[in-house]
Amino acid sequence: MSDNSLAITKFSDLANPTRFLALVARILPWLSGLTALALVAGLCLGFTAEGDYQQGDTVRIMYIHVPAAWLSMMCYTVMAISAIGTLVWRHPLADVSAKAAAPLGAGFTLIALITGSLWGKPMWGTWWVWDARLTSVFVLFLMYLGLIALNRAMDDPAKAARVSAVLILVGFVNIPIIKFSVDWWNTLHQPASVVRMGGPTIDAEFLWPLLVMAVAFTLLFFALHLAAMRNEILRRRIAAQRRMAARMASGREGR
């Protein structure tokens, strides 16, 4: 989204990676600062909020777990939008965006899984249950890892981006189906004794820190995504210059 939402309004400006880099250089310090502020605010709110009378302090895991889970979805959406950018407009920045987002998505998904597991131990008495949400997040995690592996297996970055884009979109269409089928599967197998997380409604006291943390995580994602895109662009520039150097050298001896 970072590039695409802008890319549609100011496509010509952003078509040029140099301008994009200049923009990143301007935005990134502010975005990072804002992210840090929001994270500090969210964590303070999270730690000062009262614990749940049933779950005690463990409920605070939610302030990390839920935003991470939400970002694991949003990150895939960003990748899907970038994939459309790659396939329809063949825009190199869209390639970079999708490639940079995949490890971030995997990271947030992993955080969601680990915190879910840590939360599950005191709540359910076990590190892992085949709960519908955990399971579908786990499948999502596998998809992220598969896409990263695919991207690494190909030498030509442009081709890798286009081929991955097709798979990203197929995955995007499939995620609701996977979610639905895992829910179905879960209602068949779920033992009734497991405490469902979250409870029926969330108290306003938990809601505020949660919202602030969600905003902070979203900002964090965009800051990391922009930085990762910048790094990828610089990496490709270096690769291009190295190629140029190799060609120049062979040109001198060859002719």
Binding site: M143, L150, A160, I177, F180, S181
Partner: peptide, 20 residues
């Protein structure tokens, strides 16, 4: 087709999609 060595990676990519 685009992979120098395909095989296993294909199964890894396809299996999550085949879960439903």
């Amino acid at each position: 087709v685009a992979l120098p060595r395909g095989g296993l990676l294909v199964s890894i990519l396809v299996l999550p999609l085949a879960v439903p």
